[in-house]
């Protein structure tokens, strides 16, 4: 059993899938930048961003539910922001005491936490749209076109190729460990060993993964060198952007600026 389903890319022919990866990458990052630039509590702009991302999700023809379900990934991180409901000064909303401590929840604090959650939520949806409608080779081509150093892109590409191989390897190591993590039938003993022993065994697994990766790296280099690799990665460039790509890019950026203006000037 392999874990190729890790790859979030869904092949498709929707307009979002067919958009040039360079344009898509720039628009996705600019969307997130717009969300981050908006001040706390700029709700009209937040609603516009949500409407925009929902429209884009509709256009992917993958079903909005897919995106909304995955978008809860960033939720645990909200814990870091939660204390703000007490620490931000402002109009008190509620007060309660816990032992010697008195906590005051402020309206401004609640608004700030809700703003952070909302910005994070729409941003992660855009990141999911990008990852699920753009294949990794397309992303690599976009990175190359956006002047990310070739060496780094080449390493990214090799890494992607072997992520699934090595994730399988890690999975098999975990299974082999689980298969021997047993208890005696007449068990009078405490199973599992000590914490330090468990950690050391896990370290051994990591070490074995690394050693095998070193050996694999040498073999890959030999195979690449055998085909004429000399340190330079040569690829075919992406075709030049067509007029409609520029139009989409321009329109997207203008929409972002308008949304930002609504938030920055009115609120």
């Amino acid at each position: 059993m392999h874990i190729h389903f890790l790859d979030p890319y869904h092949a498709g022919r929707s307009p979002i899938h067919q958009l040039d990866p360079r344009v898509k990458l720039v628009l996705a990052v600019a969307f997130i930048l717009t969300a981050s630039l908006l001040p706390f509590g700029a709700w009209p702009s937040y609603i516009l961003l949500l409407a925009l991302i929902l429209s884009i999700e509709l256009l992917t023809e993958m079903g909005i539910a897919y995106f909304l379900k995955r978008a809860f990934l960033a939720l645990p991180f909200m814990l870091a922001a939660l204390p703000l409901i007490f620490t931000v000064q402002g109009t008190p909303l509620a007060t309660f005491t816990l032992g010697a401590w008195t906590f005051t929840i402020s309206v401004e604090g609640v608004e700030r936490v809700a703003s952070i959650a909302f910005k994070s939520w729409v941003s992660v949806q855009m990141a999911i749209v990008l990852a699920s409608t753009t294949s990794f080779p397309q992303l690599l081509a976009a990175m190359r076109a956006l002047r990310i150093p070739k060496l780094l892109v080449a390493i990214f590409g090799l890494m992607w190729r072997y992520i699934f191989v090595l994730a399988d390897e890690a999975l098999r190591l975990l299974r082999a460990r689980a298969a021997r993590s047993g208890a005696r039938r007449d068990a009078p003993y405490k199973t599992g060993g000590t914490l330090a022993w468990r950690a050391r065994v896990t370290g051994g697994m990591a070490g074995s993964l690394l050693v095998r990766s070193f050996e694999r790296g040498d073999r890959i280099y030999a195979a690449m060198a055998a085909r004429g690799y000399d340190g330079e990665t040569r690829t075919l460039p992406l075709p030049a952007l067509q007029t409609w790509h520029w139009l989409v890019l321009g329109a997207g950026l203008i929409i972002y600026i308008l949304i930002w203006l609504v938030g920055a000037l009115i609120v």
């Binding site: 689980a178 993590s181 047993g182 208890a183 039938r185 199973t191």
Partner: peptide, 11 residues
């Protein structure tokens, strides 16, 4: 745990 001790799995 008892089953894992009873079955020796060789990968």
């Amino acid at each position: 745990p008892k089953i894992r001790a009873a079955v020796g799995l060789v990968f």
